[in-house]
Amino acid sequence: MLDGRGAIQHRAGPRLWLSALWLGLLVVLALGAPWIAPKDPLAQDLMLGRLPPFWIDGAEPGYWLGTDSLGRDVLSRILWGARLALTVALVAGTLTCLIGATLGLMAGFLRGASDLVISRLVDIWMAFPPVLFSILLVAVLGPGLFSIIAAIVLIDWTRFARVVRAEAMTQGAMDYVASAQVAGRGRIGTMALEILPNVLPTIGVLLTLEMGIAVIVEAILSFVNLSISTDAPTWGGMIAEGRTSVHQAWWVLVFPLLALFLTVLSFSQLGEGLKDRFDPVLR
């Protein structure tokens, strides 16, 4: 090239690989929890309460990350907790995305009455404080996996709707949309075939962020004991229990917190990384 401007290239940064690696590992561990987990996550043994992790004196072989005050194995509980966290992330994230993005696309591209209705709905929805709203919802629906997912979807669809609407409006003003009209394509066809591919990268980033948020919301709900049944292992539940005994057994709090932190971070980094890597326009 004579012109130096063509020489810039985007490389897939380490953040894409690291986050994909962590999430991939987590999926495998979660799926394999019944076989991989060294102990029964529910088995209590008060004789083995508050055992430290393996590298500290007083550790018991087999309890790699120690035990909580009831003598339950922390590692096994984290692995079983990952099953719930990932289920919520995938199902709630995807449903939120589908509903929110579809409404946002309609409002932003079709405009008119559909925009009026959807935008007002979003405005009203966003006037509710989200955490209180979700706690209220689960309290009404009763605890359980279905309630958690329903709460997340009902609260967070506005996030997609707003961003996708703005993006669809920008794209709708581009000449390629007018050009599709000149070619004789209908409104719905233009929305699906011309606009959607251009908002897809944004939707992808939002989706991964939403999965991270879903993990957090689930943790918050189990932290306040509104998740699935109380003794099932959840990261939020473990954090809540660990908090009470942090001065005697920090590991009960720190390990689930770390798992939560890495997972949420990985989801957000995965989205950005994928966008950098696979967006033909950015490249």
Binding site: M174, D175, Y176, P197
Partner: peptide
Amino acid sequence: FQDPMSSLNPRH
């Protein structure tokens, strides 16, 4: 169209 960058869908 005037601006071929905006009139050609960048994803296609």
